[in-house]
Computed example of a mutant assay.
Amino acid sequence: MSLHIVTDDDISDGRARRGRLMIWGSLALLVVVALVQWLDRSGALDLGLTSWRPTLYAFLFFATMLCWAQVVAKGEQGKRVLFVLPAALFVGALVVFPLIFGVGIALSDWNLASPDGRQFNGLDNLRQAFADPFYLNALWNMVLYTAAIGVEYVIAFGLALLLNADIRARKFFRVAFLLPLMLSPVAVSWMIGKSMFEPRFGPMARLARELGWDTPSFFGDPTIARLMIMAMDAWTFIPFMMIMLLAGLQAIPSELREAAEVDGASPWRRFWEITFPLMLPVSITAILIRIIFKLKLADIVINITSGGPGGATDTVTSFIFREYRDRSNVGYGTMLAFIYLVLIVVAMTVLMKATERWTKPHA
């Protein structure tokens, strides 16, 4: 039997109206159920709804009707939409509903240790965040930690050039330099921060005393502690940038370098006028991805310094973590997370727009 294909010409006005009615009717039901449940949770109604399952069921009904209505109202074109629409609805359910729920928490005074429970307080958390010196210090630390990516990039590029050259045991060094990337940051923080740099019996402390530092304290001074956090995080993730840059170097045609050598160009000139410009798209991509990883930095700080001394090494993520774990301040911590999310979205959008001309391949 041949497959019957419904074209747009076969769809009557009544059938199209029926499809639109399915969409808008199920959407209206979802809005009504969500509104009733919100009024019940806020205390305006007393229906005894203990969970958000009615809203979930209403959303599932809306999603089913929306997919069905595509075929009813659009025929063959609607069948094509079904290849994407269920996945889009699933992602939306995982993003939109938690986002709305998070906004509600961020606008609340909700401390798990308080007997009063959750209380709506409007923008009080927002005003408190911009007046919190510890949170502002954590934001400034993220600027410093992110700026250190420039040094990481230079080191990673140098290692990539070295491993791309014709040296002995090149394959061995490629594997060896990738080992830090295979370790968990938690393992790195305990192995290096808690063991090697332990101020009393750690090997680095003993070496520092031999060199004349009587009371070595790698994490007692704010400046030194920040530098140590930067160094350990860099040691973990420089191999990631290195492997991306190495792949870019191997993609450069060898004929370009050979032609430059024949023309008598020096090694520095070959690098600056051929290698570096051709590596700009890969470099920008590696730096942007590294920034994304850096903005999530928390585990090394939490395990080694817990933000100390006096919050000097705090990242935004580690500060929010302690706001939840130590102070049980769910509402304020959620507001801090939303502020950080907005700042990240704005900063990454500006960076991607600014670097767009270098990341796009030239015709």
Rank of each mutant, 00 (worst) to 15 (best):
A106P: 07
L288S: 05
I287S: 11
L39S: 01
I5D: 04
A260W: 03
D214T: 14
A260F: 07
P180L: 02
R322A: 11
I100S: 05
D314N: 14
E255M: 09
I11M: 07
Y324W: 14
P54Y: 01
D46R: 13
A259S: 14
V71S: 14
F101D: 15
T146C: 07
A231N: 10
R15Y: 03
W235L: 10
M65R: 00
R41C: 00
M348N: 06
F293R: 02
V188I: 15
R269Y: 11
E152W: 09
I167H: 09
P86A: 10
D299A: 13
L297V: 06
L163S: 06
A58S: 14
F319I: 01
T215L: 06
I252E: 05
I155A: 08
K74T: 01
R322T: 07
T55G: 08
V188H: 02
F276I: 00
P98L: 11
R290T: 11
K79P: 00
L107M: 13
M191W: 04
A265H: 11
P115C: 02
V103D: 08
A247E: 03
D132Y: 09
A225K: 09
M352A: 15
A88V: 15
A312L: 04
Y332G: 06
V345G: 02
A234W: 01
I167L: 15
A113I: 00
E258M: 09
M22A: 15
L179D: 00
M204D: 02
G122C: 04
M230H: 00
P253V: 05
G333P: 10
D109Y: 05
W52A: 12
L278Q: 12
I23A: 08
M279I: 04
R174C: 03
P54L: 10
S195E: 13
A205G: 01
L288N: 03
M204S: 07
L246S: 04
G220H: 09
G122A: 06
F130M: 11
F276P: 02
L181V: 06
L45Y: 04
P361F: 07
A63L: 03
A169L: 15
W213E: 04
N137Q: 15
C67W: 03
L35V: 13
Q77K: 13
N121M: 01
R327N: 14
R20T: 09
V143N: 08
L351I: 09
T275Y: 02
F293A: 10
V301Y: 01
A354D: 01
R206G: 09
A34E: 05
F177D: 03
A337G: 15
F120W: 13
F271T: 10
I302C: 00
D233Y: 03
E323V: 00
W24P: 01
F237G: 11
R200M: 12
M279S: 09
A234G: 07
W213G: 01
K74R: 12
I23V: 15
T146P: 07
G193D: 12
Y332M: 08
H4F: 12
L207T: 02
L181Q: 12
M228H: 06
V81S: 08
A28V: 12
G307K: 07
L107V: 04
S217P: 03
F173L: 11
A165R: 10
V154N: 00
Y340S: 12
S283C: 05
G92N: 08
S26I: 11
G25P: 06
V342I: 14
E198F: 05
G25R: 00
L123A: 13
A156T: 09
V151G: 08
L163Q: 03
A251I: 07
A208Q: 05
T215F: 02
G122K: 02
T313Y: 04
A106V: 05
